[in-house]
Design a protein around this nucleic acid. Structure first.
Lengths: 249, 249
DNA sequence: AAAAAAATTGCAGGTTTTTGCATTTTTTAA
DNA sequence: TTAAAAAATGCAAAAACCTGCAATTTTTTT
């Protein structure tokens, strides 16, 4: 087998599977691993693949795995935020959780909106505070350093005394069977109470989280009134949720 | 699974769910927890995630820098903050108000201090949150946009239920005859209750505000235990306060 | 076509990386 | 405070890597 052929095969495999292993290629093509290594080295020099210890990866891999911007999927979150912001009307009493999507929602609020926002998320409160006309009510309690949100019995009982018009939850995982799930026990307590204390529940999530699961159950999908993702409502991924009676935006 | 793939997967999970757990990743990818720990360590070194005990967090909204530049008399406030920080000991329950001097105090706290801080000031809370070991308790209520602090009956009644070891107040005006005065009615309510709810009252102010007045009375000078300015304690400006029985630092 | 030059390949050796395990230390939670 | 979980540390085995070199193959030149 010629060097050219070999390298062409390697590239083919890399593009096909996004990765190749040196020892596998070696036995497949019956050349020494040294030769494979040299091939991989050459191909990586001209940027056709990315050499790593033990093999090589497709060059597109790096861009996917190491996102360039600070906040993951920021553009998608902005799209979501815009759709969500349109639901809020003057005079409304709005309950929100935390998370980067909610922060984007806070930033996407029209500057003339006159509503009242209740939250325990410190980053969200900071954003609301910068808005000229909205009223901000803080749920007090101990701050969880992990999620940067107030958690505890006090915050919970505060929410109990509220009946909000609408509640926005940035969710971590949603699945038709498991419903909404999350990974932080304290935050789950809050979300559950927020769902009880609101007339309308709006869930915000990037489509990547659709049909994924996390360890702790928050609620079933039937509790959700509106689901917002960056996708158009007619995307097949969302069809099951529409069928379940959820308004998808 | 290649190391690089593994790390890419970890990053993806962190970006998607804001949090990952070492033991979960370990079983998902079938490598030892040691390996996961090493991966997390490497990724945190290049700033792709923030390592915490038991797993890692997304870096995206952990860098919550509150915009607080061009603070008036910053250097003097730093001197004050340093003196004040020395008063706080491990295990203390500390009540603080708002204002730029208090923010500087928050920044001047020694990184090993293990105390509990209670405040309604959003900028102060943001600072406390960034500290590795202190506990933060938020006084919830409506946020006053001017002073960026929670004000109202709720916050007041919360403070009533507290008996703090020490209370730090950034003050706006102090005078031997008028005592401490301020210009925001809501904030005055809070300060008055904080004074009642604390064993020891520490007032922080730049010397410019010594012997000045504001419209609303907070309390008389005899309520103050300690007064901290940027000046040395033997400065003649401070002598009247020392004579009144106040410890001046 | 023959000789020379260049490139390719496998191998021996020594080096570095990666990984898991055992031990000790630190952190966290009860 | 104590007990459990997680982290740090040191170590060792395996795998992968690198370097130089000699044998072989391919290409170029004469």
């Amino acid at each position: 087998m010629l060097k050219r052929e070999r390298q062409a095969y390697i590239l083919h495999q890399v593009n096909l599977h996004n990765k190749v292993l040196s020892n596998l290629l070696s036995s497949e093509m019956e050349v020494s691993e040294d030769t494979i290594r040299r091939d991989l080295h050459e191909l990586s020099e001209i940027g056709k693949l990315i050499k790593v210890h033990g093999g090589a990866l497709s060059p597109s891999f790096n861009k996917l795995a190491f996102p360039l911007n600070n906040v993951y999927a920021l553009n998608n979150k902005r799209i979501i935020a815009k759709k969500a912001a349109a639901l809020i009307k003057d005079g409304m009493f709005v309950l929100t959780g935390g998370g980067t999507t909610i922060i984007e929602l806070a930033r996407a609020l029209p500057p003339t909106l006159a509503a009242t926002f209740v939250s325990g998320s410190i980053p969200a409160i900071v954003e609301y505070m910068n808005h000229p006309t909205i009223e901000v009510i803080v749920l007090g309690d101990k701050v969880s350093k992990v999620s940067k949100i107030t958690v505890g019995a006090d915050a919970l009982s505060r929410i109990k005394n509220i009946k909000a018009d609408i509640c926005f939850l940035g969710i971590n995982a949603i699945d038709m069977e498991q419903g909404i799930t999350d990974n932080d026990w304290d935050v789950v307590q809050l979300k559950q109470q927020m769902i009880i204390s609101s007339q309308k529940i709006v869930c915000l999530t990037i489509s990547e989280k659709i049909n994924t699961m996390q360890p702790i159950h928050v609620c079933d999908v039937n509790k959700i009134d509106i689901l917002i993702t960056e996708l158009p409502a007619n995307d097949p991924l969302l069809q099951p949720y529409i069928n379940a009676g959820i308004t998808v935006l």
